[in-house]
Amino acid sequence: MPDSPVAGSRKEAAVQALAAVPNVPGAPKPDPILVADHVMRRFGGLTAVDVDHVEIQRGAITALIGPNGAGKTTFFNLLTGFDTPDSGSWLFNGKDLAGIPAYRVARMGMVRTFQLTKALSRMKVIENMRLGSTGQTGERLWASMLPFTWRKQEREITSRADALLERFNLLAKREDFAGSLSGGQRKLLEMARALMSGPEMVMLDEPMAGVNPALTQSLLQHIKDLREQGMTVLFVEHDMDMVRDISDWVIVMAQGRVIAEGPPEDVMKDSAVIDAYLGGHHDKALTASGVSFTEEDPA
């Protein structure tokens, strides 16, 4: 994990790097970490995802938004190896990920969380965290029966886990079963657990879903912290206010395709985006009267 510089500097760097990028779907980025080309996924007759070209800027927070059924989560699953596209290619750090199973994608430095939080209920919080660490000797069958081969590494993993739990305000829950945590705490645990592997890129599927407003702010701050520590974040979200607050770049999907891209302020004025959310023939007088869709709850 790169050392964290002065707070805020990475945000400026990300905004600056993206300043010259044109606001068109599939725009090339100066330093893409993830590039997807012609990724298509069909479920029977339904084309869930049909993305011609999209690039994700390294070190930035990119939001993936779109109305329900736009194919955001499916696209997420395709990128992380949890689903296989019918065609297309996608590169992470220049490496082709086609045919790479999900667990290897995670080991390469791209970890994800889930829309429906997957806390491992009947395991303690600290065990959840320890599980997140990759490359453990004790996870090999033969070595596992010889504790002296993995004790030292286990201690190192535990201290790293404790540090993360402290940062995510979960240290008091260390010995509790993950199943006893609240919805928001589970989201925090899932994020902290994903960080145990020291990823380069973190993919968050609806990190705010089901989180109470009090926790939302702290969750947002944690996402910003990821960027400050040099990680790239791609997240799916419905809530426009959150998106505007934390993202450096927004990609809008509708009906499986990328329909708009740009900085949050510009994207929210984009007529294609408004059409996608409110329908093509929405009442023009409504926007003219100053009620912009960003103040509506799109979900």
Partner: peptide
């Protein structure tokens, strides 16, 4: 034990 709880979560952890 992780697999018993949720194998996709374990997969996502590499």
């Amino acid at each position: 034990k992780g697999i018993r709880e949720d194998e996709d979560a374990v997969r996502s952890l590499g």
